[in-house]
Design a protein around this nucleic acid. Structure first.
Length: 156
DNA sequence: GTGCTGATTGTTCGA
DNA sequence: TCGAACAATCAGCAC
């Protein structure tokens, strides 16, 4: 087991990066990945992953834009910060398309989790029928890709 | 070489 | 009802 907890070092970095004290819940990233891994080991790998929130949907696009505008900045922390700031600055109408996409993904997730739960009840002996390796969201949510509002990221 | 860490917000789920 | 966990991403660094 390779439970590398470089808390000492990274924490030092964290301390330097923690100017943001007005966080909502005060960073829950404290969750040790080691424990997480253990949990994941216990959990079903077939269990559908949670759907991205509206912010994460926005983040996906924001990353692309950010990388184009800041090709030298590859740190995810920088992108996350920038995305968070922009997200807060956005109006509800601007967030609407992302929330819509998130709602669709959530709907898909509910279907998947329902099917997953059913399989759990029936017995998880043949999980091969549940191919989550493929994007189940393919086909029905075709309008999912219509969100191409590039007029969003026109920050100077 | 492997795998955790950071940074963000929203959502989900368990206690 | 509250709070913790987790969702994506990837360079950097410790072991």
């Amino acid at each position: 087991m390779k439970v590398v907890k470089r808390k000492g070092t990274v924490k030092d970095k964290k301390e330097a990066l923690k100017p943001v004290d007005d966080r909502k819940v005060g960073k829950r990233k404290a969750a040790p990945k080691a424990e997480k891994s253990s949990k994941l080991a216990k959990k079903d790998v077939n269990k559908p992953k949670r759907p991205p929130s509206a912010f994460f949907v926005f983040l996906e696009e924001f990353r692309k834009t950010y990388k184009q505008e800041h090709p030298n900045v590859t740190a995810v922390s920088a992108v996350g910060k920038a995305a968070g700031e922009k997200w807060r600055a956005m109006s509800n109408s601007e967030k609407a398309p992302y929330e819509d996409k998130a709602a669709k993904r959530k709907s898909d997730y509910e279907k998947l989790i329902t099917a997953y739960n059913k399989k759990q009840e029936n017995g998880s002996d043949d999980e091969e029928g549940f191919d989550r390796s493929k994007p189940e969201v393919s086909g029905e949510n075709d309008e999912d890709e219509e969100v191409e509002d590039d007029d969003d990221e026109d920050d100077d």
